[in-house]
């Protein structure tokens, strides 16, 4: 790698409006407006904001699942038009297939790319080991706890060896203790794999604990109101939360977020 500083991910002036029909009237709901930022390779960036601010939509636009009305997304300088193997999503709802066992779920993406069975099994087993689910290869999702299911979701994302992992409130469906455990594990895996992570959350505490940088969105339509650099030492652990600096950043983030919550645009009737 020479010194041409191409960001891993560039978000340029993204805007998105949804249309919904209420009693025969079409209502335009702008969810994102003029969102621009860039992310360096290997960094951990969180996106926080009040609910409905479009942070999950932003994540889907980066993945290519949803098309933006305005602006563009560039990965390593290339324009994103559809989902690609250089990006993978970890969903809040896990997104596992109930009729596939852990191995089948983790290997699913490889199967869709027509990777031969032996190769995909080997790679899937490797990722299953990485997330600590050895021995559960042939369990079905309903036999696993929430925390284990999300580990499967993470292993599936890793199996395609993407550069960027997009995480949509991945730990909000698990209990508090599991959540802290998963946060810790994710940081370890991140350090080990060197992936770039975009992490959507509504928890300020989580964002501060995990990230290099936090992007704070306003209420709908979401626009960036502040970018916070978190310069806490790594590796982070339980002691990190006890640092005065941690509290200071968290309080600061909360003050910024409060300003953004005030008024959400409710959308206007267009037809």
């Amino acid at each position: 790698m020479t010194a041409v500083p191409v960001p891993r991910l560039q978000i340029e002036n993204i805007g998105k409006t949804f249309f919904k029909t209420v009693r025969d009237k079409t209502i335009a709901v702008p969810v994102l407006a003029h969102v621009s930022f860039s992310v360096d390779p290997g960094s951990f960036v969180s996106v926080i904001g009040p609910s409905g601010c479009g942070k999950s939509t932003l994540l889907r636009i980066i993945d290519g699942l949803i098309h933006a009305d305005e602006g563009k997304v560039l990965v390593d300088g290339r324009l994103v038009t559809e989902p690609g193997v250089d990006r993978a999503v970890v969903f809040q709802y896990f997104g596992l297939y109930p009729w596939r066992d852990v191995l089948g779920n983790v290997a699913f993406g490889l199967e869709l790319q027509n990777v031969p069975k032996q190769a995909r099994t080997a790679r899937a087993l490797d990722k299953i080991r990485l997330v600590g689910l050895e021995g559960f290869e042939h369990h079905y999702p309903h036999e696993l706890s929430g925390g284990m299911r999300q580990r499967v979701g993470f292993a599936r994302a890793l199996a395609l060896d993407p550069d960027i992992i997009l995480m949509d409130e991945p730990f909000s469906a698990v209990d508090e203790q599991t959540r802290e455990l998963l946060q810790h594990e994710l940081l370890e895996l991140w350090a080990k794999t060197g992936k770039t992570i975009i992490f959507v959350t509504h928890s300020i505490d989580e964002a501060v604990y995990m990230s290099d940088r936090i992007i704070v969105l306003s209420a709908r339509p979401g626009r960036i109101i502040e970018t916070i650099d978190v310069e806490l030492p790594r590796p982070r652990d339980d002691r990190t939360r006890a640092m005065p600096e941690f509290g200071r950043i968290r309080t600061g983030a909360w003050e910024i977020l409060k300003k953004g919550i005030r008024t959400a645009t409710e959308g206007q009737v267009v037809a």
Partner: peptide
């Protein structure tokens, strides 16, 4: 919640039918 992960993993329409919708 079943179709979105497959689309994100670049499933073709045929794969989507065969491996997600049908089961």
């Amino acid at each position: 919640q079943l179709t979105e992960p497959a689309r994100s993993l670049k499933a073709t329409e045929r794969q989507l039918l065969h491996k997600v919708i049908f089961p």
